[in-house]
């Protein structure tokens, strides 16, 4: 690395544009929101930055506290399901033949690159009242009803579509659907780096596959697992589109509340405070993870 004083002109040419952009169009907008979070509405459009903590106080009211807690719980459940579903997939990719690896990775990556809105819409389309899943269940139901009729037990009541959308089930299913690739990729990276001879040793010494996975593979891959959990949890916590389109009235998450303050309720200072609370939560998680990996690197 070179000291900047050795070639000041080249340094200035390289440094000025990105740093200026970063401050003007990232730090400044964030700073304004931060300022607003200590402000209050004066009149319809005027906001006075008065240094009040009232907006943060309002966020602690039971109504909003409940939504925040719920967001955390929903994101945690999503992350846990993604881990359980994604871990075997990552194992399969990590232990596949070299020829197959890129294709298996592509299999996971392709939906990840597809537009989020379209993936959510596809799920809406399949799960809807007259969608594929419901008509599949309807066929099963009618088939069973027919069998029951033939056996002399009488027919069932007419089929009522199962409500698969606009509830907490749909919300979590949607979040898992969208975030699964986030989990699989870091898990794969961690498992792929493992020293395979240690796993062989464990199997040779008489441990079963389950024991080897829980006692050897998971502890060794722990740093990768933790980053996978973080990479899934953070975007799931701040998710806007999935709860908006798939959730019911009771499955709103913090991002939806923030949006409402800015677009409909027009309470910008409160929205700003909520938005910074979400940001702080994200930062704390990332900082904890960074501390952990630094500690591990030192050992």
């Amino acid at each position: 690395m070179q000291d900047w004083k050795l070639s000041r002109r080249f340094f200035a040419a390289v440094a000025s544009a990105p740093i200026a952009w970063l401050f003007l169009f990232f730090v400044l907008p964030m700073a304004i929101v931060w300022g607003y979070s200590f402000g209050r509405n004066v009149g319809l459009t005027e906001i006075e930055i008065s240094g009040t903590f009232a907006n943060y106080g309002k966020a602690l009211e039971p109504l909003y506290l409940e939504i925040m807690l719920k967001s955390v719980v929903v994101a945690a459940i999503t992350t846990a399901i993604c881990f359980v579903v994604g871990f075997p997939v990552a194992m399969a990719i990590a232990f596949a033949r070299d020829k197959w690896k890129p294709w298996l990775l592509l299999l996971i990556m392709l939906p990840f690159w597809t537009n989020l809105l379209i993936r959510t819409y596809a799920l809406l389309f399949v799960l809807g009242g007259r969608g594929l899943v419901n008509s599949g269940i309807e066929h099963l139901y009618n088939g069973t009803s027919l069998v029951s009729q033939l056996l002399g037990f009488g027919a069932f009541d007419p089929y009522q579509p199962v409500q698969l959308l606009y509830n907490n089930f749909a919300l979590i299913l949607g979040l898992v659907y969208v975030h699964l690739p986030f989990m699989v990729l870091p898990l794969y990276a961690a498992l792929d780096r493992l020293d395979k001879s240690l796993i062989e040793a464990s199997l040779d010494l008489g441990a079963g596959h389950w024991k080897t996975i829980t006692r050897i593979v998971i502890p060794m891959a722990m740093p990768g697992i933790l980053s996978g959990l973080l990479i899934t949890f953070v975007p799931a916590l701040g998710a806007y589109l999935t709860p908006d389109l798939m959730g019911g009235t009771d499955s709103q998450m913090i991002a939806n509340v923030i949006e409402r303050q800015f677009k409909r309720a027009n309470d910008w200072p409160f929205g700003a405070a909520l938005s910074f609370l979400l940001l702080y939560a994200t930062f704390i998680l990332i900082a904890l993870q960074a501390l952990r990996s630094r500690k591990e690197a030192r050992q």
């Binding site: 900047w4 440094a15 990232f26 994200t282």
Partner: peptide
């Protein structure tokens, strides 16, 4: 380059990647 404030710039540069979309949108 090595320059004063390098770590700060590097950290700030990574922020837009990790900040939740909704916060950036609002900003």
């Amino acid at each position: 380059f090595r320059f004063p404030g390098r770590a700060g710039i590097e950290g700030t540069m990574a922020l837009p990647i990790v900040v939740p979309e909704i916060c950036l949108g609002v900003a």
